Simulated assay, not measured.
Amino acid sequence: MKSFRVRELKRTDVEALLAFETHNRAWFESHIDARDLDFYSEQGVAEHIEGYLSGFAVGAWHPFVIEDANERIVGRANLKCINALTGRAEVGYRIDQGACGQGLATLALRHLIQEAKVRWQLTQLVAYVFEENVGSRKVLDRCGFLLEQPACTDKTAGECRFVLSI
């Protein structure tokens, strides 16, 4: 298996993150909601990173990137909507299309679970995945997340909610 590492997002990641997001744009948009067009520029990505790091500074986000042996970004993972009072957060991840099938989503999710436990002392993680995103559903299952039955008033049509108690 190739060598990969998960590390926190940095302000200096603008060019590498823009390249990753641009290269995989069509792939991502086939599985998740599209980003605004303004995102796809150095300024857009710099603002995006700044927003994530500001959220990290106040304990609401914890953004990570996954790098290959050449320090190229091949994935992202985030703890988001961190709520210390309820002990909950959401997880999200995206993996380069060319790097799929190498265990990176599982690596990223296990890293998020560990950070949620150790750094943030969280007790529950939630993930939202479109029904047709079979790959992500398998990753969530592999990492112990359980599919939660949707409520009748659920406004997330087409999405499945997975929960992990930690």
Rank of each mutant, 00 (worst) to 15 (best):
I95G: 03
V126N: 12
A105I: 10
V91E: 01
V118G: 04
F20M: 06
N133E: 10
Q124P: 03
M1L: 14
G135C: 11
A19D: 14
K2T: 06
A105M: 13
R142D: 13
V91R: 02
E132D: 06
L109M: 12
I49R: 09
G135D: 05
E132K: 03
L107Q: 10
E159P: 00
L37H: 07
I82A: 02
G44M: 01
Q97I: 03
L53R: 01
V45Q: 07
F28D: 01
G59T: 15
K155L: 11
R76T: 10
G135Q: 10
G87S: 03
Q124A: 15
G144C: 12
C143E: 05
C81H: 11
A16P: 02
F130K: 14
E42N: 03
L164K: 02
L146F: 09
I166N: 05
S41P: 11
E50S: 04
W61Y: 14
L146S: 12
C81V: 03
F130D: 08
R35I: 00
K138W: 05
L85M: 11
E71L: 14
R119Y: 09
A34N: 05
G92H: 11
C143V: 15
K138Y: 08
C143G: 12
L164E: 02
D154S: 13
K2W: 08
C81K: 12
H111M: 05
W120R: 12
